[in-house]
Design a protein around this nucleic acid. Structure first.
Length: 562
RNA sequence: GCACCGGUAGCUCAAUUGGAUAGAGCUUCUGACUUCGGAUCAGAAGGUUGCAGGUUCGAGUCCUGCCCGGUGCACCA
């Protein structure tokens, strides 16, 4: 199973919970059903981005920031060089002029506000696009955030913020304008040096990887996710040349416009052929590139080498990729190419892409902060625990702080994971703190609470005799409904594994919790006479165990006390 | 333009893959507590499953054509 796969030198963000959570839940279900599972975190630790990162590291690195928040600093370096490299010379001139005008203009707190708004206005949108625009608007948005957060309009402070912001922007734009050779060229050079084994670049790359791994360890620790292997893209680097040679030798790939590419073999009708795309009524080639015209390799090549390695090393019956739905065309090409390349090996393995949709904010657009930043996973988990702590404190003020914090950790992390697993994975879903932490409805806290109730009864009720339990026939409708549902646990797990849909299990558990709650409400357990007492105690025990185990295979803990 | 994924109650989502009267939560209204921990339970209200055809004993689910939304369409992953 291949899932999570974050990029080195970037903070893990909210999007990673999908691949990580769904992948981890599926591998746990498969293991529980008796499959032998190998998990492999295919880190993005070797790609074009390192060219820009190396330029940034060598020329713009702030050691103090790196020590404080390494991922933030690495991200900043990448964004700065990316901005400088991808913005045209004329646009850089325009940016420099506009910044200079802003510096000369009179500033009041109100004007700072207006100027900040202008920075993100349509005027800029027309001139700059994508990351380049963000590069300029983010500091402005941050200034805005400070203004809003201060409560008062502190004129002094914002004049200072403004100066600093404009100075930073001007310095960056100047740096980009004066770069010689241009930044894009520098980045390419650094990348080629890295890929050909330059000792200095390799050592910087190792340092960036090391810093990233520390971040990954922390986050995976909090999420309770472990991998059997972490073989990143760099691991396959030595094989890439021979992969391309082999594909060329077998006539599967050929040279095209200086690159090496795999084209359609015509075995599929055009509509189903991922190597063809229709442009204005004509089917034209949409090849898979395995070597760029500059000699570099891309992720298709790495992915082919990865399949080959996995088959050789582990002989799996199946390789499952839990990756964003947008990459579906890539995986179709990858699987088809591999089948043509190594037909005998391909017959012994099923290759599956398990896709999923996006996480949206309540504005219906991809979930971001108010200022448009991507949300860092670490921050998200912090906030989940804080919010859960507030709820726990309201409900259980008598518990000591350490206990409340531990409950909040389990509830908060569980809520985030559960919300992500609950919707059909293919559709997008809307992120909502209020909904995921709600105490009623289909949420982790509700399931966890029902577990604590069932568990409490078994603790108070003591051991029961399974033989006696087996001889009592349930009579109450609430008992019968609960018994019948308990029996479906195994069928549900089968359905989850067959369709790779953890939400089936979520719905099963929610139904179980509801049926238990009805039963608990309508049927006295401990005060009932035997043999009914044993029957009901056993039902509580079974419910608690299924809830706990069900949550566990979703990667969610069940606290004994809430 | 072409392909893929969606469109289900006012809102957010289910529907174990072709089975019986399409289910939950939120919201609104009405009930149940000297409780086995009420972070609970019961009831009411809310639907032409985007539209139009078709296949079938039976369609939210499969087929065809439209409409709307999202995504993707060689040298980023």
């Amino acid at each position: 199973m291949d899932f999570s796969s974050p990029n080195v030198a970037k903070p893990m963000h909210v999007g990673h919970i999908r691949s990580t959570g769904i992948g981890d839940a599926l591998q746990r279900v498969l293991r529980m059903l008796g499959h032998r599972v190998i998990t492999d975190n295919h880190l993005g630790d070797w790609g074009t981005q390192f060219g820009k990162l190396l330029v940034g590291w060598k020329q713009r690195l702030n050691r103090a920031n790196l020590a404080k928040a390494p991922m933030t600093e690495l991200e900043r370096l990448y964004r700065e060089i990316h901005f400088g490299a991808e913005t045209s010379a004329t646009d850089l001139e325009v940016a420099a002029q506009q910044i200079e005008q802003l510096r000369l203009s009179h500033s009041s707190a109100l004007l700072v506000w207006e100027e900040a708004m202008q920075l993100s206005s349509a005027a800029f949108t027309n001139r700059f696009t994508g990351d380049a625009l963000k590069m300029l608007t983010e500091p402005a948005e941050r200034a805005l955030g400070l203004l809003a957060g201060s409560g008062l309009v502190d004129r002094e402070r914002f004049a200072t913020e403004r100066e600093k912001l404009l100075a930073d922007l001007a310095s960056l734009v100047d740096f980009a304008r004066q770069a010689n050779p241009p930044l894009l060229e520098q980045a390419r050079t650094e990348l080629v040096k890295l890929q050909s084994g330059d000792p200095e670049n390799l050592s910087i790359w190792r340092e960036m990887t090391r810093l990233s791994q520390a971040q990954f360890d922390t986050i995976y620790g909090r999420l309770g996710v472990r991998f059997d292997h972490t073989l990143g893209e760099s691991f396959y680097n030595p094989q890439l040349g021979s992969v391309v040679e082999s594909l060329l030798a077998r006539g599967i790939a050929r040279e095209s416009e200086g690159a090496v590419a795999v084209f359609s073999d015509g075995s599929l009708p055009p509509k189903e052929d991922p190597f063809l795309v229709n442009r204005d009524g004509a089917w034209v080639a949409e090849p898979a590139l395995i070597r760029k015209s500059d000699g570099g390799f891309n992720y298709m090549t790495t992915d082919l080498a990865t399949i080959e390695y996995r088959l050789k090393t582990w002989s799996p019956d199946e390789i499952i990729y839990v990756v964003d739905d947008r990459q579906a065309p890539h995986f179709r090409k990858l699987f088809l190419t591999f089948r043509r390349w190594q037909p005998e090996a391909a017959q012994r393995v099923q290759l599956r892409h398990i896709g999923f949709g996006k996480i949206l904010g309540d504005d219906g657009k991809p979930y971001k902060t108010r200022s448009g930043d991507t949300i860092k996973l670490a921050d998200l988990l912090d906030e989940a625990e804080e919010r859960a702590l507030r709820v726990v404190t309201t409900k259980r003020p008598e518990l000591d702080e350490q206990t409340r914090r531990e409950i909040a950790r389990v509830v908060g992390i569980g809520a985030v994971k559960y919300q992500d697993l609950l919707p059909n994975r293919q559709s997008d879903y809307t992120f909502s703190w209020d909904k995921m932490l709600a105490l009623t409805g289909n949420t982790a806290p509700y399931l966890q609470y029902q577990f604590t109730r069932a568990y409490k009864v078994t603790r108070d009720g003591g051991v029961y005799d399974p033989d006696r339990f087996a001889k009592v026939i349930p009579t109450e409708s609430a008992e019968l409904a609960l018994v019948k549902h308990l029996l479906n646990f195994g069928l549900t797990l089968d359905a989850v594994s067959e369709e790779a849909r953890p939400n089936y299990l979520c719905n099963y558990l929610y139904e179980l919790a509801g049926l238990f709650s009805r039963f608990y409400d309508q049927c006295q357990v401990l005060k009932s006479a035997e043999p009914v007492r044993t029957l009901r105690l056993a039902l509580c025990d079974l419910t608690a165990r299924v809830l706990k185990q069900g949550l566990a295979v979703l990667g969610i803990e069940a606290p004994e006390v809430m």
